[in-house]
């Protein structure tokens, strides 16, 4: 009998002789019996459609989980990128950030620049400059009014919305309020650029522009701006700018009633005594005022 004859028998691979011999053996019947019983065997139920559906679902699920698995890293990259951009931006911003000095109403400040140039800021004003670039270019941005005492050196430029002032080394005052631009030179020579036109201001002269129009003005009699002596001086300046200056110096709200604020005002008011200042403004302008708390009302004499 050949090797594994039982397996061969099942596969009908036995020779005639072998099959005959096997059939004669007593084991044959019992093997036959086993096969008969085995033929009635069944495997457990297997729902193929359900399994296929499950595979397809799992496929989708796996695809999804893959995304989920990758997501934290992508998220990290995103966050990292944002952080990097923010850091780079903040670094650049802080690096380029200008030094900035501001004064509030009724406040003056003295600023010493890196080259020992001095700036005195009048009330409600702001200057800013780049400390990093100061060695290369002496540029100061100004809003409001300030007095400059510039150390000798490279070109020193004051940039305002109204116009720019360039000097080499001198003392001068720049005022740039809404619609009002004034430069007064006290020493040396100042170059004022206004509306693209350059004007040279020798010592003791002023440059005034109101609402974009240049106005001839007389030379100042003092060698320092009046506000530095706790006074505000005006020469043929519209009353509204005078009132605005009063508001800044005394931090007092001003209202007007039936008052021509375009009339020109010449005179001086105190920056320390509000009541005195109000009289200084109202009497020459022939108007009256009511002073209540932190508010002032100017009104024409003939109205109640």
């Amino acid at each position: 009998m050949q090797e594994n004859y039982l397996a061969k028998w099942l596969n009908n691979e036995l020779t005639e002789a072998e099959l005959a011999e096997f059939k004669k053996s007593e084991a044959y019947a019992s093997y036959q019996r086993i096969l008969e019983a085995a033929n009635t065997l069944e495997a457990p139920d297997f729902d193929m459609e359900e399994a296929l559906l499950a595979v397809k679902n799992k496929r989708i699920f796996k695809d999804n989980t893959k995304v989920v698995q990758l997501a934290p890293f992508r998220m990290f990259l995103r966050v990292a990128a944002v952080v990097a951009v923010l850091l780079a931006g903040a670094y650049l911003y802080l690096n380029s950030l200008n030094e900035s000095i501001t004064t509030q109403y009724a406040e003056n400040k003295q600023v010493v620049l890196p080259d020992n140039s001095e700036i005195v800021l009048n009330a409600d004003s702001e200057i800013s400059y780049s400390k990093k670039k100061w060695d290369k270019q002496r540029n100061v941005n100004l809003e409001g009014e300030a007095y400059f005492k510039v150390a000798k050196g490279k070109r020193f430029t004051v940039i305002t919305e109204g116009g720019s002032v360039a000097v080499l080394g001198t003392q001068f005052n720049v005022e740039n309020r809404r619609g009002f631009f004034e430069v007064t030179c006290y020493e040396g020579l100042v170059s004022v650029t206004f509306n693209g036109a350059e004007t040279k201001l020798p010592a003791g002269t002023s440059f005034i522009a109101i609402n974009g129009k240049m106005i001839n003005s007389d030379a100042p009699e003092t060698n320092l701006p009046s506000w530095m002596n706790q006074e505000s001086s005006f020469k043929s300046i519209p009353l509204k700018y005078v009132i605005a200056e009063f508001e800044r110096q005394h931090n007092i709200m001003v209202e007007t009633q039936n008052v021509d604020t375009d009339q020109l005002f010449t005179g001086t008011f105190s920056n320390t005594d509000a009541h005195l200042a109000l009289q200084s403004i109202s009497i020459p302008s022939q108007i009256k005022f009511k002073f209540e708390g932190n508010k002032v009302l100017f009104y024409a004499e003939n109205t109640p």
Partner: peptide, 10 residues
């Protein structure tokens, strides 16, 4: 496999 089958039946 044949061997296993043979042994299984046996």
């Amino acid at each position: 496999i044949e061997k296993r089958m043979h042994l299984a039946l046996k």
